[in-house]
Design a protein around this nucleic acid. Structure first.
Length: 761
RNA sequence: GCGCCCUUAGCUCAGUGGUAGAGCGUUCCAUUCACAUUGGAAAGGCCGCAGGUUCGAUCCCUGCAGGGCGCACCA
């Protein structure tokens, strides 16, 4: 402790040693043997947004972790019973595709392996690589309680997932249905709306003539002579046509209607008539639907209920047949016709166009740019597909049946429970303008498709009668009555309640990853922790998962714990490149926080991140801020070195008399800094706060006070200088924990800074 | 189409109803001093544009332009 400080601060010689000291000392746990807490401690807790097991630390994590760690350390020092719950997410599709890729390198695919072996491989992969990000979070100084680490597929966590599924099912909020869902042909699974991204694509818009059938076909004069419809209804010789525009001509093989807007005068005469679907030779009706946009294309739309989400809606409304012409792997089915069966979508498109051209039924082809829906994981175009899926009701008020799982239910729909907790202010989103992101999504929310046809994840706690399944497979179509031959249960039933002599088969589907992530604020926590630390104090996250995750945690918390999971949701900035571009590994625009830590130290990296984190503004990343952090660390170090050589007194109370004007001035400014820091942390204004601390330390303490008092040797200056420095270490500790702890150990000692009282002396 | 955010020094960003601020960069000066990872100083701004409110607007209001983002559409 009396050993003189080196000339410069060396983070490499300090950080790992200090971190180990904290961890070995058990200081990350909510209570510490070295620190008696007050009789009625407040609790303070944060749940780490569980990173994917595929992940490694990026700037977003670094920002999130730094903010969380500041709050955690600040509250811990203030004597609150504080805990930061860490963990990782199994991240269904993301992890599965990583392992898929690895297997591909070995020349095998997951179907070669079979489900059981494949899942084993994923577990192996997770054991090996799944905690990289955890060790990286430690590097940055995250003081999370690693003894409480969870994984979204831990056994206790899985129990919660099952309980929740069963509970919703018993309430009648989970249902199974054959629906058109967004399907990824590469991942071979359904996706939710939120897993879809859009990419601009240049394509063609094909105008196809569908021959009108019946009487109208001959009354060309009436239809054809009107100016306003001459370009949408064509007549040649004795045949009239209705013209539809499409970017996907191959789907015409599955058309079961043509739809126009009921207000569209151009088609008044043909509504209710039929057209003959070219190539296929099927007669399909011309119907009206409000959802059709009069201004797009010709105003007439081909309706393919089995392969388009809007068309499916129209199809259901008008009770049209659903003809599936594309299968799960993106190939044409037998229903598409002999000539097309087995073709890829692109091949089928080409062939359909060629055929139509031969028949003279292509009116024109235009260049067209639109947003193509792609899978956010594989970037494969989304194929809307008819398939059996499980849904969680979001907005309706179904009758509540008795639930074996005893919870006080609000009786509100999941959607309404979120809207109300936001509206009442029980759950605050900070900054407030992000509330609208959540509420406007919720207001229009559709039922959540929670089933995925992948292998890595929580299998649905659903068991089918094997005999029924076999019968269904044979008949190809699902008999709705037979579809009910399943039960929802936590364990496989001993006897099948339907046929009484089969071993029931568990559903092959797994749950959407977010179904389990939604339970993060309580699932997998011990009973005691749930009692003590639910709700947590604040959720800290990025805005891109407000709907994907935050909203779902809120309704899960309200439904299962009867209370919002967190009164505050802090939406932090997104870290962009200096030019405001998205940071991305593939574009080479990413910044590696671990690289920064190695180059400048963890404290400097934290400083640099927080220095730039002002309000809601996205961060245009500037490494200069980290360099400033390194210089600042060194400045602090040298202030300490100066204090040490001048025999500063770090422990005595500030003298009440005999203070010079400059003593009084600096002490006044210190008191002001404490107040502002408390206020700043309370208001989540971290950037502002670190700027103020920086200004005080560098420009008030070093440049002014130390320069002015250099020649003084009285006792007061030793006490004032030492006391100010001791306080600065405390004030700064949540932001720059390593250097402050090191200086505390070297100069003051008698404890650990991490649990020192922040404000008292 | 609907909604949200941004526009201030060369760059990245704070800020306030009444002489405009920081970090980095630039220029000049200093240097056996706790720190060259330093100290002192300087240059550099119609605070996006146009109206309005006001004694007074960079700040409040309206409109416009440019940039970013979210949602919807995308036949």
């Amino acid at each position: 402790m009396e050993k003189e400080l080196d000339k410069a601060y060396d983070p490499k010689a300090t950080e790992d040693r200090i971190y180990k000291m904290w961890e070995d000392g058990g200081f990350f746990k909510p209570t510490s043997a070295t620190k008696p807490y007050s009789l009625n401690p407040k609790t303070y807790s944060i749940h780490l947004p569980p990173p994917n097991v595929t992940g490694s630390l990026h700037m977003g994590h670094a920002l999130n972790a730094t903010i969380s760690d500041i709050l955690i350390r600040y509250h811990r020092m203030n004597g609150d019973e504080t805990v930061w719950f860490p963990g990782t997410d199994h991240a269904g599709i993301a992890t599965q595709s990583v392992v898929d890729k690895q297997l591909k390198k070995e020349g095998i695919n997951r179907w070669d392996l079979g489900r059981e072996k494949f899942v084993e491989k994923v577990w192996e992969w997770r054991e090996k690589y799944g905690n990289i990000i955890i060790s990286q979070l430690k590097k940055i100084g995250a003081s999370a309680d690693w003894s409480r680490i969870r994984f979204t597929m831990d056994p206790e966590y899985a129990e919660w997932v099952k309980k929740v599924f069963i509970h919703y099912h018993e309430k009648g909020w989970i249902y199974r249905g054959k629906r058109v869902v967004s399907w990824c042909t590469a991942c071979q699974t359904s996706l939710s709306d939120l897993e879809i991204e859009y990419k601009e694509e240049k394509t063609k818009l094909y105008y196809i003539k569908y021959p009108l059938q019946g009487e109208i076909a001959t009354s060309t004069t009436e239809v054809g002579t009107r100016d306003d419809n001459s370009d949408v209804i064509a007549s040649e010789e004795k045949q009239s046509y209705i013209i539809v525009a499409t970017t996907r001509p191959e789907t015409m093989l599955g058309d079961t209607a043509v739809a126009v807007n009921p207000k569209d005068d151009r088609y008044k005469n043909v509504v209710g008539k039929k057209v003959l679907l070219p190539i296929v030779g099927r007669e399909i009706p011309i119907i009206t639907d409000e959802k059709i946009d009069l201004t797009f294309g010709t105003g007439a739309v081909k309706v393919t209920p089995a392969h388009d989400l809007l068309d499916a809606e129209i199809g259901e409304r008008h009770k049209l047949p659903f003809i599936q012409i594309i299968n799960e792997r993106g190939k044409m089915t037998a229903e598409a016709g002999k000539d097309f069966e087995g073709l890829k979508i692109a091949e089928a498109r080409e062939k359909v166009v060629t055929e139509l051209e031969k028949l003279g039924l292509i009116e024109k082809i235009e260049d067209y740019t639109h947003n193509l829906a792609i899978c956010s994981r594989s970037a494969t175009p989304i194929e809307p597909l008819l398939s059996d899926q499980w849904f969680l009701r979001m907005s309706e008020h179904p009758q509540v049946q008795s639930s074996k799982f005893k919870v006080e239910s609000s009786g509100k729909s999941l959607r309404d429970s979120v809207l109300e907790t936001i509206k009442s202010g029980e759950t605050k989103i900070i900054p407030k303008n992000f509330e609208k992101v959540l509420t406007s999504w919720m207001e229009n929310v559709r039922d959540w498709c929670i089933s995925r046809q992948i292998w890595w994840g929580h299998q649905l706690p659903v068991f089918f009668c094997k005999k029924t399944l076999e019968a269904n497979t044979k008949s190809q179509t699902l008999n709705p009555k037979q579809a009910e031959d399943f039960i929802v249960a936590a364990e496989r039933p001993k006897t099948c309640p339907f046929c009484e002599n089969c071993e029931m088969e568990q559903s092959q589907d797994v749950l959407d990853t977010w179904f389990s992530s939604a339970l993060w604020p309580f699932a997998g926590l011990s009973e005691e922790d749930q009692k003590k630390f639910y709700p947590s104090s604040v959720l800290i996250t990025a805005r891109d998962i407000i709907n994907l995750w935050v909203g779902r945690m809120i309704f899960s918390g309200l439904e299962f714990k009867g209370e919002t999971p967190f009164p505050d949701v802090l939406i932090h900035a997104t870290v962009l490149t200096k030019d405001g571009k998205r940071m991305s590994k593939s574009l080479g625009t990413g910044i590696d926080p671990i690289g920064l830590i190695e180059k400048y130290g963890a404290d400097a990296t934290r400083f640099g991140i927080i220095w730039q984190a002002m309000g809601t503004q996205d961060i245009h990343w500037d490494e200069a801020a980290v360099q400033a952090g390194k210089k600042f660390a060194n400045k602090l170090w040298n202030i300490a070195r100066f204090a040490q050589t001048r025999g500063a007194d770090f422990k005595s109370d500030f003298p009440k008399s005999g203070l010079t004007p400059e003593d009084q001035e600096i002490l006044g400014k210190l008191a002001d800094l404490k107040k502002k820091t408390e206020r700043g942390i309370g208001a989540y204004d971290f950037g502002q706060t670190i700027h103020k601390i920086y200004d005080f330390v560098w420009h008030e303490l070093a440049d002014v006070y130390i320069e002015k008092t250099k020649n003084r040797t009285d006792e007061n200056v030793k006490i004032v200088l030492g006391g100010i420095l001791a306080d600065v270490l405390k004030i700064l500790h949540p932001f720059m924990p390593f250097i402050t702890e090191e200086l505390y150990q070297r100069l003051i000692g008698g404890g650990v800074l991490i649990t020192e009282s922040w404000s008292g002396r």
